Amino acid sequence: MSTDFQQAREALGVRLRELRLSAPGGRLTGPQLAQRIGWPHSKIYKLENGQQTATSEDLRTWADGVGQLDIFDELDARLKGFESHIRSWRRQLAAGHRPVQDGWNLEVSRTQVIRAWEEAVIPGMLQTADYARAIFLRYTDLHGTARDTDEAVRSRMQRQGWLYEAGRRFHALVWEAALHALICSPPVLAAQLDRLAGTIGMDTVELGVIPLGASLKIPTANAFWVLDDRLVITEDWHAELWLDDADTVDSYLRVWHTLQESAVYGVDAQNVIHRARRSLNTR
């Protein structure tokens, strides 16, 4: 997570400690507050020291426990201010995948240049509807979220209109492993690979493929997207991270350019895609 995020989390912890020590009925020790609100003492310690991210309900419970419920709005505003950097899937997907895709659409619409690295799947901007549907269904099953798959697919397909607007540039890097990953049925993957090969030559798309046998200067770690050199969006199993501090963006750009040195383009990229396509058993 970003340094800014951690600093904000620690600052919130300091504020929580202040409220505990200035409780109207007299200062409370950590164990006393924990007993009062029915939490383990370790949670009090972690929140005050910035080692755990509070939920909105945690903050309401804390404000009530220290006898200062009127302070909840201030605490919740602090949380929302820094939580924008780390968006847990549990919270984001509470209403399904469609709202997340709509949020991406809004951010992409105000972006001119996107650099993307994907090591496990085809980039969303280049996905077919059937491939995208398979991805959404996998994650819906994993997270147990609302099944709004068709709405999410339509939103993702709508975002691809960006590729056909003059002045946009999409620089995509894909590891060859993603071309073989059967996250969907073989026929769906075959159609997806055909679509991917067809994007080579578009004036708004530069697609690089890193072959499995390529020499690598750094490991092919987690996927990420850089929007206009101002915002990095990456994800882990628990959350999606939106990182906008300059040092972090610069770090991800260095990673992207380093990975790019191992990629092939044009006819060579098409050859890698066609090789993956021929290896499929679509019967």
Rank of each mutant, 00 (worst) to 15 (best):
Q260M: 07
Y139Q: 08
Y252H: 11
G65M: 02
V226L: 15
W39S: 04
G144Q: 09
P40A: 12
E119W: 13
V153E: 07
V66E: 09
P211T: 11
E48D: 03
L196S: 05
L182H: 05
D4Q: 12
R27K: 15
R15W: 00
S42M: 00
G144F: 03
G208D: 06
A166F: 12
A246V: 09
F224Y: 14
P187A: 08
P31H: 07
S56P: 00
K217N: 13
R90W: 05
L19E: 05
L182G: 06
D76K: 12
W242S: 08
Q158D: 13
R90T: 09
R154V: 02
V272H: 07
V108M: 10
V264P: 12
D150F: 00
W175R: 01
M1G: 13
G26K: 10
H41E: 15
D229T: 03
Q32P: 01
L19Q: 10
R278A: 15
L28Y: 06
A63E: 05
V272I: 15
A276L: 04
Q158N: 13
A132L: 00
A246Q: 10
R156D: 06
T128P: 05
E74M: 10
D148W: 05
L173T: 11
V205Y: 05
L33C: 03
L259E: 10
L227P: 04
S279I: 03
A120G: 02
N105H: 12
N281P: 00
D247L: 11
D141G: 09
A11S: 11
A152Y: 05
A263E: 00
Q260T: 06
T111L: 01
G67C: 00
R169A: 14
L243I: 15
L179H: 02
L212R: 11
N222F: 12
V264A: 07
T145P: 03
